[in-house]
Nucleic acid binder design. Structure first.
Lengths: 229, 229
DNA sequence: CTGCAATCTTGACACTGTCAACTTAACCTT
DNA sequence: AAGGTTAAGTTGACAGTGTCAAGATTGCAG
């Protein structure tokens, strides 16, 4: 039986918030570089991604839908097709956006750390990793939960690569162990990725480890690192 | 434009494979224990889960659908409702089935290992873990990819707990390090879970590590273990 | 100013989960 | 055994989904 929502939210397609507040007649169609921002809507592609990010954050990874982002952006259900041919394309763009924030949150912590202390740098990156995952669990699931992505999205590829590059950087000072340089990088990566994945999967017994920042330091083994200098 | 399937498979609802081969009049309604196996169909609940497992294996974690498992079991689209009230319930049952195989594959490897060598036992469990994940990637995603589950499913809870118990067992001989006994258990778990998760997420550079069994031994740090006795 | 191409709209189709009402079959009571 | 209750199956409907097709609108290029 469980609980059922009888039929909430019938007011999906409320238009009228089309160009709210933005510049209406001062469109300044000049350069401005990357954005398409040409026709009716100000910048629909970006608005759809924004809506998608919110949607995922509010209702989970599998709540991302073409029709809902269209409604949120105030356009018809078929409008997104001109920017994202399939749902996977939209999803990939949203994931790319997620990777930007993911990388930003890691860099944020890294810049607070002592740059001359490789271990502090590594732990800082992992702290940023965890902060992102626990503050955006749905986005994390969307990014790493095995959803289909359009492989040819360059924006996504670059954003994802930027994230991985950070982990490569902080793993670089590790002295190669049995597994070689690449092996240690994978090790660090596996630990933090696996730890977060487990914690997000509501696994009862381990969930109540409140002080994750402290646990982070403890959970890492004594990886051999180069001397600072 | 990507590739599109014009409109394949219109023959969804082919009935006629209702009781194919099974005992038709010799239903033997006696004890036989757990199964409900009472009315029209032989054992619809199990058949639906079977179909669900196949469906996930063939078309991915998000291809699991009530109507498709119903069609595969040869019943109407609303028949599953009497066994699984919602899609999340069906999904949870399929995941429970996955955990059974997951645990079995770990135990399979453990029993091949030298029981007096704790490290061999731990590596064996992890080998089974990896075997399951790489042979059933879609099921792995379904199990750990953040899909909604019905929390009150006892069959699932027991199956999942059985899996975790195996990891606890093989982690037990670890000597407590900085993180304490529980910390080391989480560490082992994180490494294998994270490694598999990363490998399944087609992350370019690391994908071509062919010999995973060999890498498995290398990637583990030198965790302190009790002497065999 | 005329065409064109990009953008957005409406409409349709097949598919989905879920609910409601109905039919049927198995069991339980008398 | 007859009858009633209920579980297990059916058809039908509804809202919501991705996606395609065709028409309308807009801004820019010629």
């Amino acid at each position: 039986m469980t609980t059922r929502k009888t039929n909430g939210k019938t007011n999906i397609g409320d238009r009228e918030s089309r160009n709210s507040g933005k510049s209406k007649s001062s469109r300044e169609p000049g350069g401005h570089g990357a954005g398409k921002r040409s026709h009716h809507h100000g910048d629909l592609r970006a608005a759809l991604i924004d809506a998608g990010v919110d949607l995922v954050s509010e209702h989970g990874a599998s709540a991302l839908s073409i029709r809902k982002v269209a409604a949120r952006a105030g356009v018809s259900h078929a409008a997104p097709a001109h920017h994202f041919a399939t749902l996977a394309d939209l999803r990939t763009a949203v994931i790319a956006r997620g990777h930007l924030k993911f990388a930003a949150m890691m860099r944020e912590q890294i810049e607070l750390a002592d740059a001359s202390d490789p271990r502090a740098m590594l732990l800082a990156a992992c702290r940023g990793y965890m902060n992102f995952a626990f503050q955006n669990p749905s986005m994390f699931h969307l990014m790493f939960g095995g959803f289909e992505k359009s492989a040819d999205d360059m924006e996504f590829s670059r954003a994802a690569e930027a994230s991985y590059e950070i982990l490569r950087e902080v793993s670089a000072p590790l002295l190669p162990g049995r597994a070689g340089p690449e092996g240690n990088e994978i090790l660090v990566w596996s630990i933090i990725h696996g730890y977060v994945g487990i914690m997000l999967n509501d696994n009862s017994a381990l969930k109540d480890h409140a002080d994750r920042a402290a646990l982070l330091e403890m959970i890492f083994p004594d990886l051999p690192m180069r001397e600072p200098g």
